Simulated scan of single mutants.
Amino acid sequence: MPQNGPSDSAEIFDRALRRKRRDRAARRYEGFLRDHMLEGVADRLAHVKRSFHDVLDLGSFGGGFELPGARITRIDAGSGFAAQAGGIHADEDRHPFPEASFDLVVSVGVLDQVNDVPGALALARRALRPDGLFLGAFLGAGTLATLRSAFLQAEGERPVARFHPQIDVRAAGDLLTRAGFALPVSDVEPLTVRYSSLFSLLGDLRGMAATNLLPGTPPLTRGALARATEAFSDRADPDGKTAERFEIVYLIGWAPDASQPKPARRGSAVASLAEELKSKN
Rank of each mutant, 00 (worst) to 15 (best):
E99H: 14
G109T: 02
H95M: 10
A120E: 13
F138L: 00
R94G: 15
V108E: 04
V106L: 08
A137S: 12
P118F: 11
D174N: 14
Q166S: 07
A124D: 03
R162A: 06
R126H: 06
V105K: 04
A154S: 05
L133A: 03
G119S: 12
G142L: 00
G119V: 12
P130M: 01
H95Q: 14
A120S: 15
P130W: 00
Q113P: 02
A145Y: 05
R126Q: 07
A150C: 09
D174K: 15
L135W: 03
R158K: 15
G140V: 01
T143S: 06
S107R: 06
D168R: 04
R148L: 14
L111W: 00
A120Y: 13
G119L: 11
V106M: 06
V160H: 04
G132K: 07
A145N: 11
P96V: 01
V117I: 13
P130L: 00
L128Q: 02
G140E: 00
R94N: 15
R129E: 10
I167L: 09
P118T: 10
L144D: 04
V160L: 08
F163D: 02
S101L: 01
D131V: 05
A137N: 07
G173W: 08
G173V: 11
A120M: 13
D168W: 05
E99N: 14
Q113M: 09
N115Q: 14
H164E: 02
E99Y: 07
A141S: 10
V110A: 08
D91L: 15
D168K: 04
A161E: 15
S149C: 10
D131L: 06
V110W: 04
D116G: 10
P159R: 09
L144H: 03
F138R: 00
A171N: 13
P98Q: 14
R129W: 05
A161Y: 11
L123K: 13
D112I: 02
R129S: 07
A172Q: 09
V160C: 07
G173K: 09
V117R: 13
A122K: 13
S149A: 15
V105F: 03
A171W: 10
I167Y: 05
A120H: 12
A154M: 06
L152Y: 14
F102R: 00
H95F: 10
L104W: 03
A100I: 03
D174W: 13
R126D: 07
D168V: 02
L104T: 05
L123M: 13
Q166A: 08
G136H: 07
H164A: 02
G156Y: 12
E157T: 15
G119T: 11
P130T: 01
D103H: 03
A137E: 05
Q153W: 11
L123W: 05
R158C: 13
R94I: 12
L135V: 04
Q153F: 14
V105E: 03
G119Y: 10
G173I: 10
P118W: 12
A122D: 07
E92L: 11
N115Y: 12
Q113E: 06
R94E: 15
V105T: 05
S149E: 15
V169G: 02
R158W: 14
F97W: 03
T143D: 05
H164G: 01
P118V: 11
V108S: 06
D116C: 12
R129N: 07
D91E: 15
G156R: 11
L111Q: 04
A172N: 09
A171D: 15
Q153T: 15
P159Q: 09
L144P: 04
A161F: 09
H164L: 03
A100D: 06
A150M: 09
